[in-house]
Design a protein around this nucleic acid. Structure first.
Lengths: 341, 341
DNA sequence: CTGAAAGCGCTTACAG
DNA sequence: CTGAAAGCGCTTACAG
């Protein structure tokens, strides 16, 4: 492995000078710079990053922590954030964390030796932030969960108003004439993530205001976040409550699984059963029928997160907590309930 | 920031001894170990990874390089590989690379300072390997493209036989009675990736053997790899060649977009137009109708890759190149062509 | 079993 | 503008 020492030896300069050209310091004569750069190219030399960050004061790029690897919705936000960062001339460094990891604890560790300018968290439980965030000392923003209640100076948050969105979704179903409404999704294990609870609470409130008795024990069927989970969950639900005419799925993936399950069992969507999802992932537009959903504003979530973080890094702005408007997307999967005798 | 020096000072031992307990060296008395561990816990000390890997001989975990961030098929392989590695008690470190990056060049750089035991590449162009792989000196495997022609001692490859699979897919269409067959997908820009060419070549060969004249200029419509791309491409194709009765899409994502486009234009799938994709992603089972496809054996690709790499790391086995059987999945999107007058 | 010391590859005041 | 030297946080022979 060729090191800075080799470059120094070959070029005939000291390692200090070589280091200066690597770091684009202006204190090097053009002639020297050129010679050294030639040697670097010729030797195909890459400075050892470990050694560098061991000394360097410069902070490394903004780090993005994504909770879970196969979350199509977070993937979309990530992509947008990277685009936005690029527009602002900033690099990013992405770390995917397992479902079971405590994202914050991991981030603490990484930020200790990487020294990022700032952190963006996509997903993650508010409880974990409460527990470990105090050890992160760079500006950070959480996207997808509301951290305002935590009161950390260093943590902003941008999120969709899950409660209101679910309230609106279910209100719409009710306005279409549905009164027998089921809910699927929401893994009991990850209950502490918060979003699921808020969506269920919003849905329940919509029913309550319309004097529909939401018997959660019967009408709510929990399941994981994959299509298969939605497939199985809706069947369990329909078997238990065959009178149901509309289903609110806690995520689009779950809804897509449910749609296919219903169709396989001979239900027509939406003529027999209406269906609405949550998120607004690209696939929702490609199902047949197109899925009604709550479309979260991914570009806006990303834009706000990036601008917030950059302003705080550069101008020490204060952390903020904001809710980004969603859009109800009627799709083709909702109809008025058929008169059944 | 607390360092090993602080731990040494507080515990009253030397930094050498502290280092030994951190590294689980056996040459430490139980009493000392306990005292030092207590201080580490109490101070919440995390050793600086940069400093560590600067010295350490131990290689870091296997690195996995994934080409592109939103490739649902590679994501599936990645997940399987991580499961397999976990079974073997190995950790992994995943790096997602941009579409435009030269994965191998990036891997070279990273492997220089991370010193992984081995590398797994998911996707990536064979040309880039030819150019830069020689600088990687740890066992590596490429999944998704055939590297046998490159002749590197350090690079295995496991892949689906794209040519034969496409040949089989199109042969099936022909056996169903189709003779007017179109192909969509395959971005001309990423043409050097190889897979696309092989799939098209296999399809063309199937036609040739059945004395169907495949006018590639007319019957092949290139496009990107997203659903939207497939949506637009199939419409361009049908407009140009309205006589087509069957479409082979180079990937499932493209096929799903095409399916919806055809349905939106009033074509019935499969009654009017038959459709087949490639990959076997989970969504293919959730479209309506279910998508016919070439199901790549993801678990097997992952398993082989992992076992190969581990054997080579531990027992200096030689690199190998193997093709993993695929499965033709008839789905519900293929029918015999309607008699049109 | 433990400590003192050299050194990993680099950066950065400090002189000149 | 350039070099010599200290030091980043850690690991690991080498003594004892």
């Amino acid at each position: 492995m060729t090191t800075i020492k080799d470059i120094a030896r070959i070029s005939g300069f000291s390692i200090g000078t070589v280091s200066r050209v690597i770091n684009h310091s202006s204190d090097v004569s053009p002639a020297t710079r050129e010679k050294i750069e030639a040697v670097i190219r010729e030797q195909n030399f890459q400075p050892n990053r470990n050694a560098r960050s061991l000394k360097q004061i410069h902070h490394s790029p903004v780090m993005i922590f994504v909770k879970g690897t196969h979350n199509i919705f977070l993937d979309a936000i990530l992509e947008e954030i990277q685009i936005q960062m690029h527009i602002h001339g900033e690099n990013t460094n992405v770390t995917f964390l397992g479902e079971t990891d405590n994202a914050v604890a991991e981030a603490v560790q990484i930020s200790m030796y990487q020294r990022p300018k700032g952190c963006i968290f996509l997903g993650g439980s508010v409880l974990n932030f409460q527990k470990d965030f105090s050890r992160i000392d760079v500006p950070s923003v959480l996207v997808t969960a509301d951290a305002s209640c935590l009161g950390f100076d260093g943590l902003s948050s941008y999120t969709t108003d899950d409660y209101s969105a679910a309230y609106e979704a279910v209100s719409y179903l009710i306005r279409q004439g549905h009164r027998e409404i089921g809910i699927i999704g929401g893994n009991p294990d990850s209950a502490h993530e918060g979003n699921v609870e808020k969506r269920i609470a919003g849905a329940a409130e919509a029913m309550r205001q319309n004097r529909i008795d939401f018997a959660e024990k019967e009408r709510f069927e929990p399941c994981g976040f994959l299509m298969d989970d939605g497939y199985a969950a809706v069947l369990r639900l329909m078997e238990r409550c065959p009178e149901i005419t509309a289903v609110f799925a806690i995520s689009d993936l779950i809804a897509i699984g449910a749609m296919r399950a219903l169709q396989d069992k001979g239900y027509r969507v939406p003529e027999d059963i209406s269906l609405i999802g949550f998120d607004g992932i690209p696939f929702a537009v490609y199902t047949n029928p197109r899925l009604a959903t709550i479309h979260q504003n991914v570009p806006q979530l990303a834009k706000k997160a990036v601008e917030d973080l950059l302003l705080r890094i550069k101008y020490q702005r204060a952390a903020a907590h904001e809710t980004i408007p969603y859009r109800f997307e009627p799709g083709e999967s909702i109809a008025s309930p058929a008169r059944r005798s």
